[in-house]
Design a protein around this nucleic acid. Structure first.
Lengths: 138, 138
DNA sequence: ACTTGACCTGACACCAACTCACAGGTTGTA
DNA sequence: TACAACCTGTGAGTTGGTGTCAGGTCAAGT
């Protein structure tokens, strides 16, 4: 199948198929008559594996590693477990950071309810934002 | 002051000062004797404003807009309020998406506790990941 | 006076994971 | 045979930096 057909079958944007192919994650053979790329059933499965791993937060580099391991008949599973544990920790940190940001945003919105718009002058661009940064410094 | 001094004063990495200068967010004058960039007190305040806005999740493009508005003596505050409201919504979505991911990761880690490592074969790369994607398809 | 080391400059490459634009070749249908 | 719709490789743009390079400048120590 061509890239477009594979993309439709695997429910992945065509540009993504082309991108994965360009970086070597997919390696289609060629139609010698016209130079078109030909993807096999196994490429579709490979692509679906990539999608599944990406949904779990694996990076493409990690996925490539996993696929390479598998290609040499070495089990990638310990690596997979390790990455997931690491990702869980990273994700926890990211979530709490976003929550902190969300609180700052909501505090700002609330505090700004009673503030008037200021016209910028030499000392101030927008007192809304500056009032928050002063809070942070205290 | 030079870029390095400004960076230290404003507690921002030197590379960031250079980057902001390169993209035009900071516009230092020049020391004609040696071509060095000279930052004024107002540049320091501008940089601190940028930092404060970035802490609230503003993008550099938005900050540039705000600064441009202010430079024309138009109050940027309505824009600022709008962006913050939008960012609060986006952030909420991002947080819940990350939480969903976290759940998938934790479910995977738990489910995998009892699973053995599989050796890759023609049908499977890593049954751990494939078991999850099957769950999602059901 | 000279050397060393720390600083400065612009231009460029790199990161992730795409997304898109370009120019040209091929295929299928009317 | 005309034309739309597909295919190709390549290169650029995205975000917010981080870093490297070669070469110029400056201040301090010997």
């Amino acid at each position: 199948m061509t890239a477009a057909v594979l993309a439709k079958h695997a429910d992945v944007p065509l540009f993504t198929v082309r991108y994965y192919t360009r970086i070597g994650l997919l390696r289609p053979s060629r139609d010698l008559r016209n130079g078109y790329k030909i993807y096999k059933q196994s490429d579709k499965e490979r692509l679906q594996f990539i999608s599944a791993a990406k949904d779990l937060g694996f990076t493409l580099a990690e996925i490539e590693d996993i696929l390479d391991h598998a290609a040499h008949n070495k089990t990638p599973c310990p690596m997979v477990r390790e990455i997931v544990e690491k990702r869980i920790e990273e994700n926890k940190a990211k979530i709490s950071e976003l929550k902190r940001l969300q609180k700052r945003l909501e505090n700002a919105a609330t505090a700004w309810k009673t503030m008037k718009n200021s016209t910028p002058d030499g000392n101030s661009v927008c007192r809304l934002i500056e009032s928050i940064s002063q809070n942070r410094e205290r």
